[in-house]
Amino acid sequence: MFNCGKIAIVGGGSWATAIAKIVVRHTHHIGWYMRRDDRIEDFKRLGHNPAYLMSVHFDVDEIYFSSDINKIVENYDTLVFVTPSPYLKSHLKKLKTRLHDKFVVTAIKGLISEDNLLCSEFFHQVYDVPYANIACIGGPSHAEEVALERLSYLTVGCADKVKAKAFTEILSSDFIKTKTSQDVVGIEYSSVLKNVYAIAAGICSGLKYGDNFQAVLMANAVQEMARFLSAVHPLERNVYDSVYLGDLLVTGYSNFSRNRTFGTMIGKGYSVKSAQIEMEMIAEGYFGTKCMKETNRHLHVNMPILDAVYNILYEKISPQVEIKLLTDSFR
């Protein structure tokens, strides 16, 4: 039987805060790496994250905070990484402690920019963590709803079923239902793609396309996702499971979705830069779009929605023109 041991959170955003709430409720102690000492001091004083999900209160006596990632890695057995994917490498630059014997859980819904690596591939290739010691968290799970204790369903993916099951027991509660999967690659790629499709949904919303078309867009998006997953990691999976389709739908439709909000601003005429500045939060799908486009150059999967979003964000093609071309390809 696998024991997750002492658990630490790496990251200070809204999803990190929501996961910390889930875990500490079960363990009554966590380590928590945050980059900024001023945020840590405010957290200790206020009893909540000063920047994200401020309504979620913690017993700070149950938390060991540190801005030194080495201290966290040295003292904890399971490390849950919940940082925006573009910043993961910079967080780990100061790491001198080896990760190979840790249980690494990634709740990051993005690829490692420039390398175009999945987080599991990154930890395996760069830090020699065996795939059996790497897990991912997926499923339709807005941090805001998890924090409000609204019923949510999470899937833990890991090559080692026993370890996946052990971590689901840490997450499970009366408002969190869990299951396991061995499709780590599929879960990670679908987590990236659903952000791209949510941007597409937002762009269409900003252009005043209605619910009828949004339904067609999502129907085509799940088919596009299925084609890509079958090409990049062929195995028997049900793409209509909640960890794939469910995550796509909640990200594409919900008002909590940063990626949909970002896309809506683009559809309304904002530039990428101005939308990013006004949001003040990371829309991972912006970075994910470029990574997925570059990844697909080697696979040649038919992905018209990905191509349309890429052309709008990176080639500065008019959203009106690009989406009109996309609608003509749908049936």
Rank of each mutant, 00 (worst) to 15 (best):
F2S: 10
C4G: 03
A8Q: 02
A8I: 01
G12Y: 11
S14M: 13
I19S: 03
K21Y: 12
R25W: 06
R35T: 02
R39P: 00
D42G: 02
G47Q: 01
L53F: 04
V60E: 13
F65Q: 06
S67I: 06
N70E: 02
N75E: 15
Y76S: 01
S85M: 13
Y87G: 05
L88F: 12
L92S: 07
L92V: 11
K96Y: 09
R98E: 08
L99T: 08
F103W: 14
I108M: 11
K109A: 09
K109G: 04
G110H: 03
N116K: 10
L117H: 07
S120Q: 01
F123N: 04
H124C: 07
V126G: 00
V129Q: 04
Y131R: 11
A135P: 08
A135C: 15
C136Q: 05
I137Y: 00
G138I: 04
H142L: 08
A143L: 06
L148G: 08
L148K: 15
S152E: 05
T155I: 10
C158A: 14
C158Q: 03
K161D: 11
A164P: 03
A164Y: 01
A166R: 01
T168N: 03
T168F: 04
E169D: 15
I170V: 14
K177V: 12
T180S: 09
S191H: 03
V192E: 06
V192T: 12
L193D: 00
L193I: 11
K194Q: 05
K194R: 00
Y197S: 04
I199W: 02
C204F: 10
G206Q: 08
F213L: 13
Q214N: 10
V216M: 12
A219L: 13
N220F: 14
V222I: 15
A226S: 14
V232F: 13
D241M: 09
V243F: 10
Y244Q: 00
G246S: 06
D247I: 11
G252S: 09
Y253L: 14
S254E: 02
F256E: 14
R258L: 02
R258A: 03
R258V: 00
R258H: 01
N259Y: 02
G263Y: 04
M265T: 01
I266L: 13
G267N: 06
G267P: 04
K268A: 05
K268L: 14
G269W: 02
G269Q: 01
K273H: 09
Q276H: 02
E278T: 12
Y286F: 15
K293E: 09
H300N: 11
M303L: 15
P304R: 03
I305V: 12
D307R: 11
A308W: 07
Y310G: 05
S318I: 07
P319E: 02
Q320T: 13
Q320M: 14
Q320P: 03
V321F: 15
E322V: 08
I323H: 03
L325K: 14
T327H: 07
